[in-house]
Design a protein around this nucleic acid. Sequence first.
DNA 1: GTAGGGTTAG
Length: 731
Amino acid sequence: MRRSAIKFKTLFATSPSKDFKTYVQKCGSLLKNLTEDRLINEGMVLHNHLIKMGLSSERYIAIRLLIMYLDSRKSAQVSEIVKGFDGFDPTVHNCLINANIQWGNLDQARRLFEEMPERNEVSWTALISGLMRYGRVDESMWYFERNPFHNVVSWTAAINGLVQNGLNAEALKLFLKLLDSGVRPNDVTFTSVLRACAGFGEIGLGMSVLGLIVKTGFEHNISVSNSLITLCLKMGEKALARRIFDQMEKKDVVSWTAILDMYVGMGDLREARQIFDEMPERNEVSWSAMIARYSQSGHPEEALKLFLQMSRNGFVPNRSCLAIILSALATLEDLRVGMNIHAHVVKIGYEKDVFISSSLVDLYCKCGKTKDGRLAFDSMLEKSVVSWNSMVGGYCLNGQMEEAKVLFDSIPAPNNVSWNTMVGGYLENKEFDKVFEVFNEMLLCGEIPNASTFSSVLCGCASIASLEKGKNLHGKAIKHGTQYDVFVGTALIDMYAKSGDIESSKKVFDRMPEKNEVSWTVMIQGLAENGFAEESLLLFEEMNRTSIVAPNELMLLSVLFACSHTGLVDDGLQYFNSMEAVYGTKPKGRHYTCMVDILSRSGRLVEAEELLRSMPFEPETNAWSALLSGCSKHKNEEIAESTAKKLWELVDKNSAGYVMLSNIYASAGRWVDVLNIRRLMKDRGLKKSGGCSWVEVKNEVHCFYSEDASHCQLAEIYDLLELLRFEMLAI
DNA sequence: GTAGGGTTAG
């Protein structure tokens, strides 16, 4: 239970003390707490209580009530209380100004300010910081310069406003002016100035400010130290940050959370967790921070665990925390818990929060419920571009590309994430033409593609093996400075490998500053599939020696593939046998198939058959085909016969098995059997899947199928071929 | 008037 709620109960339990002033103070501060905790119903009960006691028009209490009702937008009560004041009261006016700023009604706030018969320093500062908050820097500075109360607070408001608007240099200049003016900066000023230094990317500047901080005696202030830590962390000075943290006499939740975040940022979740467990004091923010980091670093299940633990410890999750946990549940596709949280969110009236409702849209879509997602989306009063993107992404994820496109076209202000979602959506749904179409449209609209865009579009090039488009994009990626991104690099390797330009693949790979699991996988795979089997195996060994990346299933498949193509049977066997023990991945169907293929090709048919029959699960049909193919090559009719039998049982839906079988019979001269199989295939409507080759001319891919002569320039092509043949014969 | 945590895309 929150502190204010406890206080609320005890206040009613105790009778009003004889000390009138103390009692008023107590009620006022309780109202303040209730407002902060948004416990408006309790606040209204207290209000009634105060009316009964005849205390509701005490100035201090009336102001607190006014703030509470303004905060919860209860306009009837607000005007009631304003009427209760006799004549002009600057504090009431200031409250109204602040509330209007809060609601974004800046012009109303300014009107209220202008019509005040007299203004105090609070009025000026409220307007200056309010204008700054909404990016109206020039207007704010106009008022700042005319402000007759040049106190630290208004200076600080202006400096901080400039920082918030990214005008760090201006902020630092203003700070120098402040020093000249003789006004003494305080802890809050230093906090803002340190943030400006961080934004400026100048640790040296920060250190000279530190000198001033020490001189003015603020170095032991918690806020200032916290800002120093943040400065160090932004500059990458982790050791220094830790030293400042260790030297702090008093630390608060913010200090702990900052240092916790440092370890998470370094990818060291274990150390972060240790810090979290050691923290002497936690609040919702520190809990949220840890939960958020788990969720963002791919550990949504840990995030959920911690969330439940937080609730058990009596902390009430705030808006941020609910948004985070919904996002984790979306990743986990946990609809059941997600709907529970949704119900809770509705109960406490948070469903209008943009962050929360966007997460809800995402949750429903990730669980395949686009209709429910759309329902949540449509019921949002206020939508941000993230809400739109979540819904568009939801359609993409569920293959509803038409709906996605319609919605995408109606986004009021699409950003690059919106575009990337569409590009990625078409890619995932294998509509490659559209990938390039949307990408070109994106460029025409003036949207800047980022690393994510390039990695998707390059992936599209790899899928259609378009070297020309790929090279073009490579150039564009360099122009946009994204060529060193891991995702872009990986997509480039794959694109070049799939297009047969393995040399360029290798170049990109060697120049990558950072490689992840996928980068290694596509390079190893690319080499193996382009006939560089030995190099592929060497690279795999190099990875094991030099990198912390662990071999995955796909990599090991490529390794086996490479062994198969170089005839390294025993090496293949060794890799295969060490998969589980050394690399910790159980061989899947594909690995067995590949291994059977290796053994069969080299004529070790008995071993191949043994392996097949010893498998803990049903082998792929292709595995039997591979064995059969080995039998045909090495003329082993005995195993061929039993394998063929097995294949007969399995080949129902697989034309490759039939074809293989028919080839075996053909090579043994059993033409009747061949005919039988062909007839059977025809009856079952199976067709040998034809080969296909293609060539790219002027950005267009021309396909040629073995049994489908439908190219539009077929006649010309054959004419030219005939001509060439004639020329060749003539020599 | 200030410091730490929030939703979407590869």
